Computed example of a mutant assay.
Amino acid sequence: MKVTRYLAGAAGVALMGEGVSLLLDVRDLTDVLVWLGGAVALHDAVIAPLVLLAGLVLVRGCVRGPVRGALVVAGALTVVALPVLLRPGRTANSSVLPLDYPRNLLIAWVTVATVTALVLAVRGLARRRRPPA
Rank of each mutant, 00 (worst) to 15 (best):
G17Q: 03
L86G: 11
H43E: 11
A48T: 10
W109D: 04
D25N: 11
L33D: 09
V13C: 07
R64C: 03
S21C: 09
G19I: 06
L71V: 03
L97H: 03
A121H: 08
W35M: 11
T4Y: 10
V3W: 08
T111Q: 08
L58A: 14
L71D: 01
A8D: 13
L42R: 12
V32W: 04
A81Y: 10
D44G: 06
S21K: 12
G12L: 13
L82F: 05
G61Y: 02
L53W: 14
P102E: 06
V67D: 00
C62K: 11
L58G: 11
V51I: 14
R129Q: 13
A92G: 14
P49E: 01
Y6C: 07
A70W: 01
T116W: 05
G61R: 02
G89V: 00
S94I: 09
G124D: 12
D31P: 01
L120Q: 13
A8L: 15
M16S: 14
L50Q: 06
V84Y: 04
A133D: 14
R103I: 01
V80N: 01
A74F: 05
V32H: 04
T4R: 13
P88A: 12
G75A: 07
L77P: 02
V122K: 04
A48Q: 10
P131E: 15
N93S: 09
V46A: 11
V119H: 05
L42T: 13
A11D: 02
A121D: 07
A14N: 01
V46Y: 05
G89F: 00
Y6K: 13
V34N: 06
T114E: 03
L52H: 07
A81S: 14
R129I: 05
L106P: 00
A8R: 13
N93I: 07
L50Y: 05
T114A: 15
